[in-house]
């Protein structure tokens, strides 16, 4: 991975849409990164950002070398 970038992995629906080896620039929030990738929901399910194995806020500012995982998150039902 290039320096100054963040790897992004998707699960469920997002996996196919993201493909492999997707990266985004560091220095932006998780919300901005997801918006730039047009991955706000996973087949209608909300998504939760996880960075380096820890659940984070959407306002978390991504750091160089971070691993961002996008998790489809089940609500009621």
């Amino acid at each position: 991975m290039e320096t100054g970038r963040v790897s992004v992995t998707g699960f469920g629906f997002l996996k196919e849409r993201l493909g492999r080896d997707t990266t985004v620039p560091a220095g932006q929030t998780a919300a901005q990164a997801v918006k730039s990738l047009h991955l706000e929901t996973a087949g209608g399910l909300p998504v939760t950002p996880v960075v380096n194995g820890k659940v984070v806020d959407w306002g978390y500012v991504l750091q160089p070398g971070d691993r961002l995982q996008l998790m489809p998150t089940l609500g009621g039902g």
């Binding site: 996973a42 087949g43 209608g44 399910l45 995982q69 998790m71 489809p72 998150t73």
Partner: peptide, 17 residues
């Protein structure tokens, strides 16, 4: 998501989170 798999889809992601 409901068409594809429905509610059981979420369990594995909940574990990872």
């Amino acid at each position: 998501w409901a068409v594809e798999m429905g509610t059981p889809m979420g369990l594995i992601f909940m574990e990872q989170m």
